[in-house]
Each structure stands twice: as C-alpha cells, then as structure tokens.
Amino acid sequence: MMPSAKMLPLMVAGGVVTVVVGFVLVVLIISTFSNPPFGLGNAPAQPVAFPHSVHVAENNIQCEFCHRNVTKGEAATVPAVEQCLFCHQNIDGTSDTASAIAQTEIEKVRTAFETDQPINWERVHRLPDHVRFIHEAHIRYFTDETIPVKYGINGEEIVESPDVAQTCTICHGDVGNKVEVQPKTGQSLKMGTCLDCHRENSVPTDCTVCHK
C-alpha cells in the first residue's frame, strides 16, 4: 500500500531520527569494543624505529633487561641510551642479516650517546594522572609461586607461575613479536579491565588502591 502524501514528512522525519540515533549508537558501540577507538590512539612515529620483534623474538632479550625498573618500581621506564650501547657498541647492523634501515637506526642511538642527547620517545600507554599503577607489585603477584591459582586479565586461569616476560604479555599482549608497539597490541586498559582482573584475583578493589 502506498503511503499517503500526508504521511511522507512523518516518514522522512522518522527516517532522519533513526539514522542519526543509529549512527551515534554505532559510533559508541564501536568505540566501546575497539581499543583505542578508531585507531585514534595508534602510537605515533618513534624517533628511532625500534623493532621489538628483532630484540625479543629473534634475540631473546627479556623484557626486564631493558625495562629494568619494571621489577623495582612504579614505572617500567624506557632504558637509558647508555643501556642500548651495552649491545650496540658491538652490534652495528652491518652483519648480512641486518637491513640498511637497521644500520641507520642504530647509528641514531650511537649519535645520541656520543652527543649526550636524550632520546624523546613517544608515549604509547598514557596512564591518567589520577591513577597509580605499580608495575612491580603486579609482576610480584603473578610471579609469586606461593599463590596457587591466578587469573589473567580476561579471566583465564593461570596455574603455572609465569616469568616476568610472560607476565608482561598478560596486559601488554605479544609485544615481543610486534615490530611497532601500539595500544591495541595489548588489552584495553580501562578502569573496568583493571577492576575485573582485581575481582577475579580477589585482590583489593578499594578505590584508593589505584586512584590517587
């Protein structure tokens, strides 16, 4: 049955409302499930193209070797340039497996060290100012063998105590096999994520544990 001419404006109006509301809903739903929303939080270009995959997956360097504060304090911290030079004094990228890019990037690090210039990395995960997150405490928990069962961030049961590097992947995902680290590499790091995991593990969920 053809709608009457009178009903047309009503139908048009209804259609517009449906489209607008639908669009808003879709945007909100996508932004809820995609992390970060629409790739807005993709890590920007780093000053030195540092491939985690080469260091971790290929050369088996443990996370805490470079992020050495991760077992000692709140922040994991990026390594000092000096520390890169531990290896890169000798490894200059001229071996046949390395590409020309590797050579130039390693050269950047060496130059920085020689000229006494700190490297300005771009932050990938930004913790809000009102949140206290202590890496050390989390690693201590997951690596503690006296606790029989622990639960991962998605509720998965962890029976074997992981080592430090495995603990990192619980939240940060498989960084070791990624060339470029992006927020989406790991878990969505929202308050609910923290809260779910704390509840699973029966550890304190008092607000002041994380909020400052």
């Binding site: 504060n69 000692k72 304090g73 709140e74 922040a75 911290t77 990026v78 390594p79 000092a80 340039v81 000096e82 520390q83 920085a112 060290f113 006494d116 210039q117 700190p118 490297i119 300005n120 990395w121 771009e122 932050r123 930004r126 100012d129």
Partner: peptide, 25 residues
C-alpha cells in the same frame, strides 16, 4: 605534567642512568 601538557606525551631516555637508581621512587 598534570593534564596533557606540552611534552607530556614524550618519554625521555636519559643518556646515562646509575645502576642503583630506581626511577619513580
């Protein structure tokens, strides 16, 4: 930085760091 201020999205590698210094402490 409290609130996203200029430079806050940077994280700086210092050139040298003493072995026994724990940052953030």
């Amino acid at each position: 930085g409290f609130g996203i201020r200029y430079g806050e999205l940077d994280i700086q590698s210092p050139v040298r760091l003493p072995e026994d210094l724990v940052r953030g402490t």
